[in-house]
């Protein structure tokens, strides 16, 4: 099993989208580990940094579409924190490009799978180049 991809999924958007993906028979990389959160705004930089300390390949934060956060500002704050985490990682020579924020609706299983496929491919390409 390759290094895991941690996907923090908000229960109002990405988590149900992931459920729908499974239900619809859409498949994605097996090394994805979804962690459910009540809002993308619950995630802070320390959670992202701890995941990298553990040695994961990438950390994704998935929340509601911009302007449609169930808790109004949660996804905006998550976006800023992901940017901050990117900078903190770069500061210590780690790959800031391995943490990213995505937005989607709860009824968008295809988008969910597309995001994960993109991330998996990017990691695979980068590993090959090493």
């Amino acid at each position: 099993m390759s290094k895991e991809i941690v996907a923090f999924c908000c229960q109002h958007s990405a988590y149900p989208a992931a459920d729908l993906a499974g239900k619809s028979g859409l498949r994605y990389a097996e090394n994805v580990r979804i962690i459910r959160v009540p809002c993308a705004g619950r995630i802070d930089v320390i959670h992202i940094l701890k995941a990298f300390e553990k040695g994961v390949a990438a950390v994704l934060v998935l929340g509601c579409e911009e302007g449609a956060c169930h808790h109004i500002t949660g996804n905006d704050r998550a976006k800023e924190r992901v940017k901050y985490a990117e900078m903190l990682l770069k500061e210590v020579g780690a790959d800031g490009g391995r943490v990213k924020m995505y937005n989607l609706s709860p009824n968008a299983p295809h988008k969910f799978v597309k995001i994960l496929d993109e991330v998996s491919k990017k990691i695979a390409d980068e590993e090959k180049q090493k």
């Binding site: 930089v45 320390i46 940094l49 701890k50 990298f52 300390e53 903190l88 990682l89 500061e91 210590v92 020579g93 780690a94």
Partner: peptide
């Protein structure tokens, strides 16, 4: 917590 984590990673 953040600084400690960063130092370990670095």
């Amino acid at each position: 917590g953040i600084l400690a984590s960063q130092l370990r990673l670095a």
